[in-house]
């Protein structure tokens, strides 16, 4: 039996953390409960963040949006601010697990679990999201890209939580795209995913682009080189075909029960080629 703490506000949380420094902290529990069932959690107690209202909600602040870390995927999927400003994130949330998991799981949890296959990470990378980290006495902010160090490894220190995600609006990017390849249409763990933001001119020219692949390396893969190759061109098959081998070279996938590394390399390349036929 483990003790589970359910604080209702941050003040309570800090007090509990102080008393239970070894506790595991979770929000929706969609990853933690699986590990718990497999006896992979050895901590004596658990602290659940899901009832802390201060950590929920989406707040528009000028040209930035702050997403509370304990916002569930469903709440974000249904949120008009997210829908309006970050379709790339909405598209990813739409294929994340299942409605039941989306009702429980949170965006902060998805970040802190730091799975290479996390569905929200590639969109948050192309959006250049920043995480807000809080402890009892301090608050800091850092790029998501810097925050995630490897599978399941983040910069979070003892006594800290991710309290929010800051995302700048991207009005210039008029094409948001997300594609996930999984073993089925729902309840699937990504084998490869690709999030893309495009700024396409009236002449169908790429003026700016950001790309991020998921599930093909220990952390999300981005490539300035490919982005630079696409800027200033139409998304023709030749241009994409030229860039595709670079995608194959920069990913570092593994073989697992879902797919081989070879397949992941091939598909990482192919998803780039698809961009030429993505509808605006």
């Amino acid at each position: 039996m483990k003790r589970v703490f359910l604080p209702h506000n941050l003040e309570e949380l800090w007090r509990i953390i102080a008393g239970e420094p070894k506790a595991d902290i979770y929000a929706g529990g969609t990853d933690l409960l699986v590990k718990l069932r497999q006896n992979l959690i050895n901590t004596p107690s658990l602290i659940c963040l899901e009832r802390i209202e201060e950590l929920k909600g989406v707040h528009e602040q000028g040209d930035e949006v702050m997403i509370g870390a304990c916002s569930t995927h469903t709440s974000l999927l249904e949120n008009p601010i997210i829908q309006r400003n970050f379709p790339v994130l909405t598209k990813a949330l739409n294929v994340l697990a299942s409605p039941l998991i989306r009702n429980m799981g949170t965006i902060g949890g998805n970040i802190c679990t730091a799975s290479p296959a996390a569905d929200t990470l590639p969109p948050l990378y192309v959006l250049k999201a920043e995480v807000e980290i809080r402890s009892r006495s301090a608050s800091r902010q850092m790029a998501l890209k810097e925050f995630i160090l490897g599978p399941g490894i983040t910069c979070l220190k003892a006594g800290e939580i991710v309290s929010g995600i800051w995302v700048k609006k991207v009005p210039g990017f008029n094409l948001h795209h997300f594609e996930k390849v999984g073993q089925r249409k729902a309840l699937a763990i990504a084998i490869v995913s690709l999030a893309t933001l495009f700024k396409i001119s009236g002449e169908e020219m790429v003026e700016d682009v950001r790309l991020a692949w998921g599930s093909v390396a220990p952390t999300v893969v981005t490539s300035n080189e490919i982005e630079a190759m696409l800027v200033g061109h139409r998304l023709s098959r030749q241009v994409l075909k030229k860039a595709a081998p670079i995608a194959r070279a920069i990913v570092k996938p593994i073989d697992d029960i879902r797919a081989s590394a070879d397949y992941r390399r091939q598909v990482a390349e192919n998803l780039l080629i698809r961009l030429g036929s993505v509808q605006k």
Binding site: Q183, R184, K185, A186, I257
Partner: peptide
């Protein structure tokens, strides 16, 4: 067994 559970043994969902 390499597919010991429903996360690794893939059955179709309603969407499939």
């Amino acid at each position: 067994v390499r597919t010991p559970d429903l996360a690794t043994y893939i059955i179709p969902t309603a969407l499939d």
